[in-house]
């Protein structure tokens, strides 16, 4: 599924990365805990989170995650967005809560991120 379709499904506002909306997403990881994201998420994964700070972007950067949707209408500050832009990420904000956002994406056939084997 493309990020553009995800944006439509979640009725999300795009905060940066308009030029990358054709990128494909294969799975989703939803968490506010960056420690868990670091342990379990992989690339081509969309990160769904309520944690809006620079650490969210840094964590995504380390994992090559190129798209983040902030839930419950949350938006990062300018500095955090700048960091996302530097890393060529797509950042969106949806009014839905985490549970509803996850449900919408899941019922549209986006799978959860698979856990690493090692």
């Amino acid at each position: 599924m493309t990020l553009r379709e995800i944006q439509e499904l979640l009725d999300a506002e795009i905060l940066c990365g308009w030029e990358f909306l054709d990128k494909k997403i294969e799975s989703v990881f939803a968490s506010d805990l960056m420690s868990d994201v670091l342990a379990f998420a992989n690339e081509k994964t969309l990160l769904l989170t309520g944690l809006v700070n620079a650490h969210t972007i840094r964590t995504a950067e380390m994992l090559d995650i190129s798209a983040i949707v902030f839930v419950r209408g949350k938006k990062p500050d300018e500095e955090t967005l700048e960091l996302a832009k530097e890393n060529k990420m797509v950042i969106m904000s949806t009014k839905h809560i985490m549970y509803v956002s996850s449900g919408i994406l899941y019922t549209n056939n986006l799978k959860g991120a698979s856990l690493p084997k090692k």
């Binding site: 506010d32 960056m34 420690s35 868990d36 670091l38 342990a39 700070n53 650490h55 690493p116 090692k118």
Partner: peptide
Amino acid sequence: ELGFGAGMGLPNIKR
């Protein structure tokens, strides 16, 4: 509150 401190750091490094 910053999203860390879940006790996964060292195990994750090892992995």
